[in-house]
């Protein structure tokens, strides 16, 4: 009993800080999501609205479209980063001269502030003095203008996210692959398994916890992307890159529609938690299987 108290004591500061800084604001957001509260409204007052904000939400096709785009963006970004990161990590397993330099340069984007990443990519892609439109036009005769073409803008944000976050995946994969015991693989090769079989039946299952964790972390962050895209396209052209983070930002700040914006946030949080919980359960299952086998 006494030792349990020590355990709680050690946990307490974390719980208190997150309770005050995380749970309290969450409860407040939950509270105002049941109110109509808009600085610009005729009454200007906070008025009880029941579940009206949520009712409005499920019929708001612009918002649901934005949610769909965000999910697509997250899916594509996380998958590409995972595959790329895994491939790159496996090339880094053996030593070759200059490996450290390459790896360090590869990790550079990781430390750049999202808002600066957005600025960097804007400078790269802005028509007029951006590098990309100029040389794409000159060398390949491609009309590249992310202010104008929705698909180009979408894939540019995707490329930006991959550029920014693949290093993170590479590093976690590399850490996982390095820490993995080598004997089973060598044994399997001796037993006549080919490269693909080793990868499919040994490496990937053993890497599963790392993979799931990485997906988990990347998914959380990709779903709430704001800064980079806001700097790059502002959410345009049209609605093409108006991901939920930006959408909510627009509702909460310029429109000051606090109640509705809170409802939106909660819905996004709900989706994220459900997705995360499923992954979490999957991770626990993988863990149980491994420990039991």
């Amino acid at each position: 009993m006494d030792s349990n108290r020590t355990g709680w004591g050690l946990l307490a500061p974390t719980l208190i800080i997150l309770g005050v800084m995380g749970l309290l604001p969450f409860l407040y957001v939950l509270y105002i999501s049941f109110f109509d509260w808009n600085v610009f409204s005729a009454s200007g007052q906070m008025e009880w609205a029941g579940v009206n904000n949520f009712r409005r939400l499920v019929f708001d096709s612009a918002f649901l479209g934005s949610l769909g785009r965000t999910l697509l963006f997250t899916l594509l970004a996380v998958t590409s980063e995972l595959i790329l990161g895994f491939l790159l990590a496996s090339t880094l397993l053996r030593d070759f001269p200059g490996k450290i330099v390459f790896r360090t340069i590869h990790a550079l984007p990781l430390v750049i502030a999202p808002i600066a990443v957005g600025a960097t990519w804007r400078l790269l892609t802005i028509p007029g003095f951006g590098l990309a439109p100029y040389y794409l036009d000159r060398w390949f005769d491609i009309d590249y203008n992310i202010g104008r073409y929705a698909e180009q803008a979408f894939f540019t944000t995707l490329a930006m996210d991959i550029w920014h976050w693949t290093p993170f995946v590479t590093l976690t994969m590399l850490a996982g692959l390095t820490a993995m015991p080598k004997e089973p693989q060598e044994q399997a090769r001796v037993d006549g398994a080919n490269r693909w079989q080793v990868l499919r039946f040994l490496t990937i299952p053993m890497m599963m916890p790392v993979i799931v964790t990485t997906v988990f972390i990347r998914m959380m962050d990709a779903l709430r992307i704001v800064d980079e895209v806001f700097m790059l396209t502002g959410g345009g052209p049209g609605n093409a890159t108006r991901y939920v983070g930006i959408y909510i930002w627009r509702v909460v700040f310029p429109q000051t529609d606090y109640g509705y914006g809170s409802a939106m946030s909660l819905l996004v949080l709900y989706f994220t938690i459900v997705l995360a919980w499923l992954l979490f359960v999957a991770l626990a299952q993988v863990g149980n299987q491994q420990s039991s086998s």
Binding site: P25, V29, R224, V226, G245, G261, A276
Partner: peptide
């Protein structure tokens, strides 16, 4: 330690990172 509901606490700790920040700026 064998703390009651430690798995749930762990999961709750993690959910703190998931909220879209814009709407939480006002309560903060």
């Amino acid at each position: 330690w064998k703390l009651a509901g430690s798995n749930n606490i762990f999961f709750w700790l993690i959910t703190n990172r998931m909220a879209p920040p814009a709407a939480f700026a006002l309560p903060m």
